[in-house]
Design a protein around this nucleic acid. Sequence first.
DNA 1: CTTATTCCTATCGACTTGATAGGAATATAC
DNA 2: GTATATTCCTATCAAGTCGATAGGAATAAG
Lengths: 133, 133
Amino acid sequence: MFSVSAKTQYAIRAMAHLARLEGRSATASEISSAEGIPLKFLEGILTQLKTVGLVGGERGKNGGYRITAAPESVTMLSIVEAMDGSVKPVQCVETAGACAQGGACLPRKFWIGLKDAIDAYLGSRTLKDIAEG
Amino acid sequence: MFSVSAKTQYAIRAMAHLARLEGRSATASEISSAEGIPLKFLEGILTQLKTVGLVGGERGKNGGYRITAAPESVTMLSIVEAMDGSVKPVQCVETAGACAQGGACLPRKFWIGLKDAIDAYLGSRTLKDIAEG
DNA sequence: CTTATTCCTATCGACTTGATAGGAATATAC
DNA sequence: GTATATTCCTATCAAGTCGATAGGAATAAG
């Protein structure tokens, strides 16, 4: 239950790898072999991390990826959300009007509480906690 | 991310239905039509809830299902675990020795912390909170 | 112009999930 | 003891998701 996708786990490893480089860049190939992540799969992950601005990519020879912020300012939540979207135990946590019971819907409050608990945890931990800088 | 299966959502609705009956029994058919849950699917869910002891089932004519404990003593965690197993963001949260880094593995500590946060929330809410008894 | 790299799109097999179907076991009622 | 209502067991199915692979286009350095 509540298992995390391989994609997200890979993303965290990749981000931790880049964090240890302190701003220097690494190619997808380097990260792939260092962290044991399938290259082509990793490419997609890095592209995704790039679109949300967590990493920067430079094309062409001598290109590569670099982290764009200090590890202590990158929350785990931002990485998880970049991969698998926002925490949403049930669909209706985002659509207030969907339920017939409206604001009085107890299950909805329950699920929103769960989302908040998860977001709070993931939002309070940073890459620095993981990368052992 | 972290979406809850339809099965678990159905199970909660079914349990809430039984909770409002205060110990009286209901057939799967009744619950199915009252809560809008596919009958055959629901049967499997109730069987599963029975194996963990959350409900009792009586066969034959005039049979049905009844809740076995007071709603305020049934945690949401127990229902969720009955449906989809224990909260386990990554495999290694249960197998301490799997990781090469052993006890020093920071990601593992991170995931265990997430599990603990989720378990704490789900364990602190009960059926009573949902069923508006 | 060659080479190394990011980036884009398509595809694949395996697995999971929600749902359906048929029927066996069991208990009640008449 | 037969009909009926119900739980319970097993098998199956379609659709979707996921992890992974493949080929190649765009881009930049030298």
